[in-house]
Design a protein around this nucleic acid. Structure first.
Lengths: 195, 195
DNA sequence: TCAGACCCTGACCGATCGGTCAGACTGAGG
DNA sequence: CCTCAGTCTGACCGATCGGTCAGGGTCTGA
């Protein structure tokens, strides 16, 4: 058999993905990655300008999809935006479970890096759409709980098949989103003094 | 005015809490904490055996409450367990927002430390109760989404008053929990082949 | 045969990490 | 006055981090 040209670049990328998933970005050293690939740390830095570039290349596909979901959301309002945001994010999260697991927890620090410059704004818009562009605290809190919870669930349930995880999350999202067009299911309480 | 005996121990604890909240446990060095307090790093290590002991003392109250919730849950089943788990966790999360923010993301690594030996099992039982002790993937996924989402929301909305955050989360939890006693709201789909 | 691009490496760099240690300072008690 | 416990510190330690660099192999095309 012909030994294919050793795709060191790809091997490093794959090893980094595995390690980042388990021990996080910060918790994984270039030495760790090099050891798993079976090369020197200098080789890792030959293929990638620095550790950050490695992460950026790893996350690029997920970020692209997130960006396109943001475009799709642009102009939509009310229940339509909620539906698209919920279903779109569920699909994205299920598909890019590994990438989400990498970011888990290190989100705030990682967002400072130039590669993730606009992620914060996009996810803010996503959250806003999921809240039905409402200012009600209940709606905004529900949106954040859903986005964060779905992310965490996808990162944790790595071994559940997509076809099982996706419909469960879709159902949950539909149930948990604060309705914005239809009248509220629960009667307004006494604390409706604002607006 | 009498200058009270300088409570360096407490000052270090408070500074650590602030720093951990912002930059995380791993991302905060003993030097950082010492700088904020205005003492030397050696002083920090005079008052606390090591960095881990500092974290442990910081988290102790939250862990106590979590443990008592676990006791309270012991023996409860079905909808009763779901209700207690949901409301109990919401209260705990709202109250210990800062502590949750500290753990944010570094959960997996931090759980390895002896101070947090049983947290994993407790949170597993909590999740199980929230799922109504059901094996249905939908119920288990909903429980995880809720627990993770509530934690994240509490860590993020640090400036929302408790009285606003708590009822919103309670309402959301009640809406999002997969009902286990009452018949399902949504008709069973075609994929009900298991069990 | 030779030049040059490509791939890879060991040795090394400065910075920072958590942690140790001997000793200085201080205030209370005998 | 001396002692001693409590508090605090600068200097230092080994380990590890991300990253640099000069140079060695190897392959290819002129």
């Amino acid at each position: 058999m012909v030994r294919a040209v050793p795709d060191t670049h790809g091997e490093i990328l794959a090893a980094a993905a595995r390690q980042f998933t388990v021990t996080g970005y910060r918790g994984t050293s270039l030495q760790d990655i090099a050891r798993e690939v079976g090369c020197s740390k200098a080789t890792v830095l030959y293929h990638f300008a620095n550790k950050e570039a490695l992460l950026a290349e790893l996350m690029a596909p997920a970020i692209d999809v997130l960006r396109s979901l943001d475009d799709q959301l642009n102009g939509l309002t009310g229940a339509a935006a909620q539906e698209v945001a919920a279903q779109g994010f569920v699909d994205l999260a299920v598909r890019f479970r590994r990438e989400i697991a990498v970011l888990r927890g290190e989100f705030p620090e990682l967002l400072c890096q130039p590669a993730f410059a606009h992620i914060q704004q996009i996810s803010d818009r996503l959250r806003d759409a999921l809240a039905g562009h409402s200012d009600r605290p209940g709606a905004r809190i529900a949106a954040l709980v859903l986005l964060a919870g779905i992310s965490e669930a996808c990162a944790e349930f790595v071994d559940i098949p997509d076809d099982e995880l996706r419909p469960a999350l879709r159902t949950l999202a539909r149930r948990a989103v604060e309705p914005v067009d239809a009248p509220l299911a629960h009667p307004p309480t006494t604390e409706d003094k604002d607006s």
